[in-house]
Simulated assay, not measured.
Amino acid sequence: MKLRLALFSALLAAFCIVKAEDKPKTDPKAMPQPEIVKTDDEWKKLLTLEQYEVTRQRGTERPFGHIYEEFEKQGEGTYYCVCCGAELFTSKEKFHSGCGWPSFYDSSKAKGVLEKPDNSHGMRRVETVCKRCGAHLGHVFEGEGFKTPTDRRFCINGIALKFVPKGGEAPKLLEVSSDAVQKKKDEVAKEGGVEVKK
Protein backbone atom coordinates (compact mmCIF):
# COMPACT_ATOMS: atom_id res chain seq x y z
CA MET A 1 0.00 0.00 0.00
CA LYS A 2 2.82 2.40 0.88
CA LEU A 3 4.56 1.54 -2.40
CA ARG A 4 1.39 2.35 -4.39
CA LEU A 5 1.01 5.64 -2.55
CA ALA A 6 4.65 6.53 -3.23
CA LEU A 7 4.31 5.65 -6.95
CA PHE A 8 1.07 7.63 -7.22
CA SER A 9 2.73 10.65 -5.55
CA ALA A 10 5.72 10.42 -7.90
CA LEU A 11 3.45 10.22 -10.97
CA LEU A 12 1.40 13.17 -9.74
CA ALA A 13 4.55 15.23 -9.17
CA ALA A 14 5.86 14.38 -12.65
CA PHE A 15 2.51 15.34 -14.20
CA CYS A 16 2.56 18.68 -12.37
CA ILE A 17 6.10 19.40 -13.59
CA VAL A 18 5.14 18.62 -17.21
CA LYS A 19 2.04 20.82 -16.97
CA ALA A 20 4.09 23.66 -15.47
CA GLU A 21 6.55 23.39 -18.40
CA ASP A 22 3.63 23.68 -20.87
CA LYS A 23 2.76 27.14 -19.58
CA PRO A 24 4.17 30.00 -21.65
CA LYS A 25 7.48 31.27 -20.28
CA THR A 26 6.43 34.83 -21.04
CA ASP A 27 3.71 36.55 -19.09
CA PRO A 28 1.13 37.71 -21.68
CA LYS A 29 0.61 40.89 -19.66
CA ALA A 30 4.32 41.70 -20.09
CA MET A 31 4.04 41.44 -23.90
CA PRO A 32 3.69 44.76 -25.75
CA GLN A 33 0.04 45.58 -26.35
CA PRO A 34 -1.08 46.60 -29.85
CA GLU A 35 -1.67 50.29 -30.61
CA ILE A 36 -4.65 49.51 -32.82
CA VAL A 37 -7.53 47.90 -30.92
CA LYS A 38 -10.88 47.28 -32.61
CA THR A 39 -13.93 45.16 -31.91
CA ASP A 40 -14.59 42.05 -33.98
CA ASP A 41 -17.40 43.89 -35.76
CA GLU A 42 -15.07 46.76 -36.67
CA TRP A 43 -12.47 44.33 -38.08
CA LYS A 44 -15.16 42.47 -40.04
CA LYS A 45 -16.11 45.73 -41.76
CA LEU A 46 -12.48 46.35 -42.82
CA LEU A 47 -11.47 42.83 -43.89
CA THR A 48 -12.69 40.04 -46.15
CA LEU A 49 -14.00 36.95 -44.37
CA GLU A 50 -10.78 35.03 -45.08
CA GLN A 51 -8.57 37.92 -43.94
CA TYR A 52 -10.59 38.19 -40.74
CA GLU A 53 -10.41 34.43 -40.01
CA VAL A 54 -6.64 34.32 -40.49
CA THR A 55 -5.56 37.62 -38.91
CA ARG A 56 -8.10 38.03 -36.12
CA GLN A 57 -9.01 34.39 -35.37
CA ARG A 58 -5.49 32.91 -35.75
CA GLY A 59 -6.44 30.83 -38.77
CA THR A 60 -4.24 29.37 -41.50
CA GLU A 61 -4.83 29.63 -45.22
CA ARG A 62 -4.46 26.51 -47.29
CA PRO A 63 -0.96 25.90 -48.67
CA PHE A 64 -0.04 26.34 -52.36
CA GLY A 65 -3.18 28.43 -53.00
CA HIS A 66 -3.73 31.32 -55.40
CA ILE A 67 -2.23 33.86 -53.00
CA TYR A 68 0.94 31.77 -52.69
CA GLU A 69 1.23 31.57 -56.48
CA GLU A 70 0.96 35.38 -56.65
CA PHE A 71 3.59 35.72 -53.91
CA GLU A 72 6.02 33.53 -55.85
CA LYS A 73 5.69 35.83 -58.91
CA GLN A 74 6.09 39.13 -57.04
CA GLY A 75 9.35 41.00 -57.61
CA GLU A 76 10.97 43.73 -55.55
CA GLY A 77 8.76 45.46 -53.04
CA THR A 78 7.47 45.66 -49.50
CA TYR A 79 4.90 43.61 -47.60
CA TYR A 80 2.53 45.43 -45.25
CA CYS A 81 -0.06 44.29 -42.70
CA VAL A 82 -3.43 43.90 -44.43
CA CYS A 83 -5.16 45.06 -41.24
CA CYS A 84 -3.32 48.26 -40.28
CA GLY A 85 -0.75 49.03 -43.00
CA ALA A 86 2.39 48.53 -40.87
CA GLU A 87 5.55 47.44 -42.72
CA LEU A 88 6.38 43.80 -42.01
CA PHE A 89 8.73 42.30 -44.63
CA THR A 90 10.54 43.22 -47.84
CA SER A 91 11.41 41.18 -50.91
CA LYS A 92 15.06 41.25 -49.74
CA GLU A 93 14.18 38.76 -46.96
CA LYS A 94 11.93 36.61 -49.18
CA PHE A 95 13.00 33.10 -50.18
CA HIS A 96 11.50 29.96 -51.69
CA SER A 97 11.14 27.30 -48.98
CA GLY A 98 8.73 24.99 -50.82
CA CYS A 99 6.34 24.87 -47.84
CA GLY A 100 3.36 26.37 -49.68
CA TRP A 101 3.22 29.62 -47.70
CA PRO A 102 5.19 32.85 -48.17
CA SER A 103 8.59 32.55 -46.50
CA PHE A 104 11.01 35.19 -45.26
CA TYR A 105 14.29 34.68 -43.39
CA ASP A 106 13.84 37.88 -41.36
CA SER A 107 11.40 40.74 -40.82
CA SER A 108 12.04 44.16 -42.36
CA LYS A 109 14.18 46.84 -40.73
CA ALA A 110 10.93 48.53 -39.67
CA LYS A 111 10.63 45.81 -37.00
CA GLY A 112 6.84 45.57 -37.24
CA VAL A 113 6.76 41.84 -36.42
CA LEU A 114 6.42 40.60 -32.86
CA GLU A 115 7.30 37.03 -31.89
CA LYS A 116 5.48 35.35 -29.01
CA PRO A 117 5.20 31.83 -27.55
CA ASP A 118 2.42 29.62 -28.93
CA ASN A 119 1.75 26.35 -27.10
CA SER A 120 -1.55 25.61 -28.86
CA HIS A 121 -2.46 22.26 -30.44
CA GLY A 122 0.03 20.40 -28.23
CA MET A 123 3.01 22.04 -29.95
CA ARG A 124 5.65 24.55 -28.93
CA ARG A 125 5.96 27.19 -31.61
CA VAL A 126 6.66 30.87 -31.99
CA GLU A 127 3.76 32.87 -33.37
CA THR A 128 4.37 36.01 -35.40
CA VAL A 129 1.95 38.92 -35.11
CA CYS A 130 1.84 42.50 -36.32
CA LYS A 131 3.31 44.57 -33.51
CA ARG A 132 0.97 47.48 -34.30
CA CYS A 133 -2.44 45.75 -34.41
CA GLY A 134 -1.84 42.20 -33.14
CA ALA A 135 -2.84 40.53 -36.44
CA HIS A 136 -1.86 36.86 -36.62
CA LEU A 137 0.66 36.46 -39.44
CA GLY A 138 1.97 32.91 -39.03
CA HIS A 139 4.90 31.30 -37.22
CA VAL A 140 8.69 31.42 -37.27
CA PHE A 141 10.86 28.29 -37.26
CA GLU A 142 14.61 27.97 -36.60
CA GLY A 143 17.36 25.54 -37.51
CA GLU A 144 15.69 23.91 -40.51
CA GLY A 145 18.88 24.09 -42.55
CA PHE A 146 17.85 26.65 -45.15
CA LYS A 147 20.84 28.41 -46.68
CA THR A 148 19.78 31.88 -45.52
CA PRO A 149 21.63 34.45 -43.39
CA THR A 150 19.52 33.64 -40.29
CA ASP A 151 18.55 29.93 -40.70
CA ARG A 152 15.03 31.06 -39.74
CA ARG A 153 11.81 30.71 -41.70
CA PHE A 154 8.95 33.12 -41.14
CA CYS A 155 6.07 31.02 -42.47
CA ILE A 156 3.45 33.68 -43.20
CA ASN A 157 -0.16 33.59 -44.38
CA GLY A 158 -0.20 35.50 -47.67
CA ILE A 159 -3.73 36.74 -46.96
CA ALA A 160 -2.28 38.72 -44.02
CA LEU A 161 0.02 40.68 -46.34
CA LYS A 162 -0.45 43.57 -48.74
CA PHE A 163 2.31 43.72 -51.36
CA VAL A 164 3.43 47.06 -52.78
CA PRO A 165 5.93 46.88 -55.68
CA LYS A 166 9.15 48.90 -55.39
CA GLY A 167 8.38 52.57 -56.03
CA GLY A 168 4.69 52.09 -55.22
CA GLU A 169 2.80 53.98 -52.56
CA ALA A 170 2.67 52.40 -49.11
CA PRO A 171 -0.83 51.84 -47.71
CA LYS A 172 -2.14 54.47 -45.33
CA LEU A 173 -1.58 53.45 -41.73
CA LEU A 174 -4.80 52.73 -39.87
CA GLU A 175 -5.24 55.48 -37.31
CA VAL A 176 -5.01 54.73 -33.62
CA SER A 177 -8.54 55.12 -32.35
CA SER A 178 -9.61 54.51 -28.82
CA ASP A 179 -11.62 56.38 -26.22
CA ALA A 180 -8.38 57.63 -24.61
CA VAL A 181 -7.00 58.88 -27.93
CA GLN A 182 -10.29 60.58 -28.83
CA LYS A 183 -10.47 62.21 -25.39
CA LYS A 184 -6.94 63.58 -25.84
CA LYS A 185 -7.80 64.87 -29.35
CA ASP A 186 -10.89 66.59 -27.93
CA GLU A 187 -8.83 68.18 -25.13
CA VAL A 188 -6.22 69.48 -27.60
CA ALA A 189 -8.95 70.84 -29.89
CA LYS A 190 -10.70 72.54 -26.97
CA GLU A 191 -7.44 74.12 -25.80
CA GLY A 192 -6.94 75.39 -29.36
CA GLY A 193 -10.36 77.04 -29.28
CA VAL A 194 -12.03 74.52 -31.60
CA GLU A 195 -15.55 73.53 -30.63
CA VAL A 196 -15.79 69.78 -30.18
CA LYS A 197 -18.96 68.27 -31.68
CA LYS A 198 -20.43 65.19 -30.03
Results as ranks from 00 to 15, higher is better:
Phe71Pro: 03
Gly122Asn: 07
Leu7Gln: 09
Lys19Cys: 15
Lys109Gln: 13
Arg152Cys: 04
Glu195Leu: 11
Leu46Gly: 03
Lys198Cys: 00
Tyr68Leu: 03
Glu175Lys: 15
Thr55Ile: 10
Lys166Trp: 03
Ala160Trp: 09
Glu187Leu: 07
Ala110Gln: 04
Asp118Met: 04
Gln51Asn: 10
Thr150Ser: 09
Gly112Asn: 05
Val164Trp: 05
Asp118Arg: 02
Ser177Glu: 13
Phe146Lys: 05
Gln33Leu: 08
Cys130Thr: 06
Gly192Glu: 13
Gly145Cys: 06
Asp179Leu: 15
Cys130Trp: 01
Lys184Glu: 15
Ser91Gln: 04
Thr39Pro: 05
Glu115Ile: 05
Asn119Thr: 12
Lys111Tyr: 09
Ala180Lys: 14
Gln57Thr: 08
Val194Lys: 13
Glu61Ser: 04
Ala160Phe: 11
Gln74Ala: 12
Met31Glu: 14
Glu72Pro: 03
Phe154Pro: 02
Ser178Asn: 11
Asp40Phe: 05
Asn157Ile: 01
Gly168Arg: 07
Thr48Ala: 09
Cys155Lys: 03
Ser9Asp: 09
Glu127Pro: 12
Phe141Leu: 00
Val82Leu: 01
Lys197Glu: 11
Gly65Asp: 15
Ser178Leu: 09
Gln33Asn: 04
Gly59Glu: 12
Gly122Cys: 09
Tyr52Trp: 08
Gly59Tyr: 11
Arg124Glu: 11
Leu173Lys: 15
Leu174Ala: 12
Phe95Arg: 06
Val129Asp: 06
Arg125Asp: 07
Glu169Ile: 06
Ala110Asp: 07
Ser107Ala: 14
Lys73Val: 01
Thr39Val: 09
Leu47Val: 11
Thr148Leu: 07
Val54Asp: 03
Tyr79Lys: 02
Lys184Ile: 11
Ser177Ala: 06
Cys99Ile: 02
Glu21Thr: 13
Gly75Arg: 11
Lys116Gln: 15
Met31Phe: 10
Gly138Pro: 03
Gly75Val: 02
Ala180Thr: 11
Ser9Pro: 02
